[in-house]
Amino acid sequence: MLPKRNPDEVLKARGADTRPDGRFEPYRREREDDGWDIPEEERLLRTDVVTETPRSIIARNSSPDVPFDRSINPYRGCEHGCIYCFARPSHSYLGLSPGLDFETKITAKPTAPALLEREIARPSYKVAPIALGTNTDPYQPVEARLAIMPGILRVLRDWNHPVTLVTRGRTVLRDLDLWAELAAKDQAAVGVSVTTLDADLARAMEPRAPTPAVRLRMIRDLSRAGVPVRVMVAPVIPVLTEPEIEAILTAAREAGATTASMIPIRLPYEVAPLFRDWLQRHRPGMAAHIMNRVQAMRGGRDNDPRFGHRFRAQGHEAQLALQRFRLARKRLGYPEGSAPLDCSKFGPPPRAGDQLSLF
């Protein structure tokens, strides 16, 4: 059960409504009016950004659920505030709430470009595509001001290092020239997440993310610049967004998307109660139906955390949704896979005074 919300805070364009304690906290806090509180002036809850200086920037993983073994996340937390975000529990490791803290207390890593160059310059480094945006969006609103991503992309460009991106942030278009340079060498691919084409639903569910129309424009502009774009129909939420599978694929294809993928919603430990609360606040008449369908896809639970199962769904209805996706993908001319990125050119950039090659 979620705690009561703070009545003194004014929430504007936020996904969560409260601050439930993280799973690792030794105590649980609950607001209770005992009649002795002094009334406080209401205040607008704003985003707080702090900086971090990590010792390394490339994170490694061996999960069978994802197609990459290394990633970079320039930010902890995400101001987009998507209520279903599977990354929310990561704030618990910082002693913060996966609720409002996740979308209002952001940690930035401005030294990421320098750390990246230091790590890929090591003689022991073995090149493989680096994934960006695997936990939180590197093009969330604060990136427009801090501009960490251009530095990362310049390092990758100079070293001819392949990179992939998952985003829904419009600031990616600011760096269009860098993405185009990498794509011209077959070293970049971008995935744009489109959850729904309903602007009102998107506003409630992903309050500070760009509208569906803007995301389709992102696909169009990236594609016209020569960047391969994958539309990610994700997450697919039964009853709520599932009916839009074919419409999203069609709109993205018309905008220039070259590949497509679909991921059913997953609700890790702390995310499930937040999502249930959101349903009661925004879609109360559909809440029980949606959660029944979610559990039908996850073996009767809100989530299946097993490796190899986290991004997959089970059951007849899940298989029907997947079949619909595959049929629409084939009808619209999407290929089943995407071309591999080129790792063969990786190497240190030339420096002043270096001996030039004869060939």
Rank of each mutant, 00 (worst) to 15 (best):
T104M: 13
S357W: 07
S90Y: 13
R88G: 15
R324Q: 06
R326F: 14
H91E: 10
V10H: 02
R331T: 15
V10W: 06
P305G: 15
E52I: 01
A288Q: 13
N160F: 07
E246A: 15
E244H: 11
C85F: 12
P98C: 14
F275W: 11
V127A: 06
V50D: 13
D221G: 02
N73Q: 00
P26C: 09
F346M: 09
R118Q: 05
A260Q: 11
R351P: 00
P98S: 13
V192K: 09
E143C: 13
N135E: 06
S62P: 00
P335V: 07
L182Y: 05
N73R: 03
A87E: 11
E42V: 01
W278Y: 08
S338M: 03
A255T: 08
V155K: 11
R276W: 09
R281P: 02
P74T: 03
D34F: 06
A108Y: 08
A13K: 15
D177K: 15
L216Q: 13
V227I: 02
L279P: 09
L2C: 10
Q323V: 12
L132W: 09
L165W: 00
G77K: 10
G299A: 07
Q319G: 09
P268Q: 14
R76W: 09
E254L: 11
Q295D: 02
P129D: 00
A247F: 04
L45C: 01
T111C: 04
G300M: 02
E143N: 08
T241A: 08
Y125P: 01
V166Y: 04
D354V: 10
F359S: 09
P113Q: 07
S261M: 09
S62I: 06
V172S: 04
R224N: 05
I106G: 01
V229H: 14
V49W: 12
D69P: 03
G81H: 03
D69S: 14
E206C: 07
L116R: 04
G308M: 03
L222Q: 12
D69G: 15
G35P: 02
G337I: 00
L100T: 06
T241F: 02
A131V: 06
P335W: 13
A147S: 09
S193C: 05
A328Q: 13
N61W: 12
P3W: 10
L165R: 05
S92G: 15
M1R: 12
